[in-house]
Nucleic acid binder design. Structure first.
Ligand code: NAD
Ligand code: NAD
Lengths: 207, 207
DNA sequence: ATTTGCCTGTTAATAGAATAACAAGGCAAT
DNA sequence: ATTGCCTTGTTATTCTATTAACAGGCAAAT
């Protein structure tokens, strides 16, 4: 199947569709209509159908979409076959929350290592994830074949860290530090900051 | 100043501009050019100028923008005078990370209460934030005048919780649960899920 | 057998956001 | 004073995303 680069937002929704579909499958459903998916995710049915069109899938006319097929198809699009290995840098509250969150999730994404500089955290295992000293960053990334890094360190170190990560061969960074990172050639970057979200909510609440 | 509803994305950036401007002010700068702001945030100068235009501010021609003035103006737009009070529901790793993050930040946004159902967490203070039993949710929201809630509980309880929050008079919800909430009349909703972000990164890394 | 109703798939229209283009102002150097 | 160079402010264009519109098809009801 020839697939042009999908729109950003469609990719985000595919991830959500899959999660929802998995839930429905677990409940014993085998087929689902676009408006059912839409209701579960609180978006419009048209948008669901449009996204499905973009990935080249087709439902059957009066039965809707085959849940299992669709889950698998989404898998071939957003997963890689071998799965993606992830590292968390900074084992504070936030880093731990992420590891806890990903623990025992059935996705192809797997947090396989954590890094810190605080001796209290190093060489300990938190929910199956081993924490290494930051000095070993490049070594472990190579050894385990880690592709994506989540930055959850204090803001000051985010930028130099991103440089090291790029050099070490990391292909994608998820930055939770409030310090925005400059895009680096060949490294996909995604950022999120709570204060920005909160101030946005506050603004629209005020109006 | 008559101000139409600002675009979503502009509001997000205003929050970031202010943070950056505060940093620069602390370094002793008094004026700043659009391209300097742009570099610090890794966006384009045009976009900075356009946003500034939308809020009706003007810089001086060869000196750029007066940092102090601009910080104040952004304040009048996204802050409310009395500040906004915030509650965190769910004092797990994530809830604690948020409280820690907001602690001692100089913004008008203030986390003033936490709620949980686990006796180990209740009636304790974490970084100046007191944790109440969920039973007292409505009472405390009214008493303290809380306007925004951050949901960091297990996913199952998110939806009923949102109903209670609405009834209690909450105007904005920031949902960090992977369960999408349906919009509720009169309550501004913002959501973020790490797995979606990760899968998005994974997709674009793969391509 | 025909009609009705309800889905899908796709194209067309609209809205929203980012980028490009450029006029105008003023400082600095000459 | 004139020229050249930056920088702002704003309008126009392009790009991206969402929503609307509708043709096509099948199943069930009449
Ligand atoms: N985006 C958001 O919504 C959000 C929310 C909360 C916190 N934050 C940010 O996330 C970051 C982490 O927050 P937290 O609450 O977990 O903080 P924390 O202080 O609990 O954890 C930081 C961890 O990073 C470690 N660390 C320090 N320097 C390091 C280095 N050079 N390399 C590797 N590890 C290092 C520390 O030892 C500590 O374990 C902070 O930058 C904070 O501002 C963001
Ligand atoms: N969006 C993200 O990026 C992200 C990341 C990590 C975790 N999460 C989600 O955030 C939530 C919290 O994660 P965590 O790691 O802090 O989990 P956690 O288990 O550490 O914390 C959950 C807390 O909620 C409390 N709680 C349970 N039921 C409650 C109720 N009815 N009312 C109030 N409090 C209640 C528990 O006592 C506990 O303290 C989970 O839903 C998790 O899936 C989201």
């Amino acid at each position: 199947m020839i697939m042009n680069r999908l729109p950003d937002k469609t990719v985000e929704r595919l991830s959500q569709y899959r999660r929802t579909l998995n839930n429905q499958l677990a409940k014993g459903k085998t087929h689902i209509f676009s408006h059912e998916i839409a209701n579960l995710l609180h978006i419009t049915p048209v948008q669901v159908r449009r996204d499905i069109m973009l990935i080249g899938y087709s439902g059957t006319l009066r039965k809707g979409y085959d849940i299992k097929e669709m889950i698998e198809l989404i898998g071939t699009i957003i997963d890689t076959d071998q799965g993606v290995k992830i590292a968390v840098i900074g084992m504070g509250n936030l880093g731990k929350a992420f590891i806890h969150y990903m623990y025992e999730k059935q996705t192809k994404l797997k947090i396989v290592a954590a890094f810190d500089i605080n001796p209290d955290k190093i060489d300990k295992t938190y929910e199956d994830v081993y924490c290494y000293h930051l000095d070993r960053l490049e070594e472990i990334i190579k050894e385990l074949g880690i592709g994506i890094a989540i930055i959850a360190t204090p803001p000051e170190v985010a930028s130099p860290l991103a440089d090291r990560l790029k050099e070490a061969g990391i292909r994608g960074i998820l930055n939770y530090t409030p310090r925005p990172l400059s895009p680096r050639e060949g490294v996909y970057l995604e950022e999120h900051d709570m204060i920005t979200s909160l101030e946005k909510v506050a603004y629209f609440v005020k109006a």
